[in-house]
């Protein structure tokens, strides 16, 4: 369990954006939704997707603080695991605020070429993590988290398959930085993200069994 005053952001993408000075915050660590929108625009997210994510950010903190979030049009990215969406950085790699080398090594172990993780390999990471955290919400959020990461950061590997390079993942998770020289190459919209999440779900080996177990 994290210290309630721990200012670490456990979402790898938001943490990297903040460290890249793209996500300015007030002394209490709160980030304006407009700043979030600007940062996501920089990643070439489409307008509707930015709106959706801003909405999700608004309801990402504890329920009693939601009116404050709505009135001030801001949120606290360091406290997202306490809200209704329970964004716990579901890969578990920085779930406690610190970098968990074991969980990162397990993610890296799923790469067959040692270069990067393709979509089926990311699905395998989620499926393996299921044994650690079997909740359906955990699986769902992992798919969105890794799906978005795949859409933003994927690039072709030596076999010309899109993959997220391990160096990129290490920069995001361990270095808490955007990959060196990163420039978004393609726009990302809601439909594209859903398509990626759907493809991840289709590649999730025991999806029917997961759903069956949860119901």
């Amino acid at each position: 369990m994290r210290d309630p005053n721990d200012p670490t952001i456990i979402c790898p993408a938001l943490r990297a954006l903040k460290n890249d000075d793209q996500l300015p915050s007030d002394p209490a660590g709160r980030v304006k939704l407009s700043a979030l929108g600007k940062a996501l625009d920089g990643l070439k997210f489409s307008g509707p997707l930015v709106m959706l994510l801003k909405g999700m950010a608004t309801v990402s903190n504890r329920v009693p603080s939601l009116p404050h979030n709505i009135l001030t049009r801001s949120f606290n990215p360091a406290r997202m695991e306490e809200g209704p969406l329970k964004h716990r950085a579901d890969t578990g790699i920085i779930g406690n605020g610190d970098f968990d080398a074991d969980r990162f090594d397990m993610m890296e172990a799923m790469s067959s070429d040692g270069e990067g993780l393709t979509l089926p390999e990311l699905a395998a990471v989620i499926a393996a993590d299921q044994r650690r955290d079997p909740s359906l919400l955990g699986v769902g959020l992992s798919m969105v988290e890794l799906g978005a990461m795949f859409d933003v950061f994927s690039e072709p590997n030596s076999r010309r398959e899109p993959c997220v390079k391990l160096t990129t993942l290490r920069a995001l998770f361990e270095g808490a930085q955007l990959p060196a020289g990163f420039q978004p190459t393609h726009p990302l919209g809601i439909i594209g993200l859903f398509a990626t999440v759907f493809r991840l779900a289709a590649n999730l080996p025991d999806m029917p069994a997961i759903l069956f177990r949860q119901t």
């Binding site: 393709t118 089926p120 390999e121 499926a127 044994r131 650690r132 080996p205 025991d206 029917p208």
Partner: peptide, 23 residues
């Protein structure tokens, strides 16, 4: 690769070892 072996569990739950096997 390990991810391809993970595709062998479509109906049954993957074994406990999948979560930590490389460590």
């Amino acid at each position: 690769g390990p991810a391809e072996y993970m595709q062998l569990y479509r109906l049954i739950q993957p074994p406990e070892a999948v979560a930590n096997f490389a460590l």
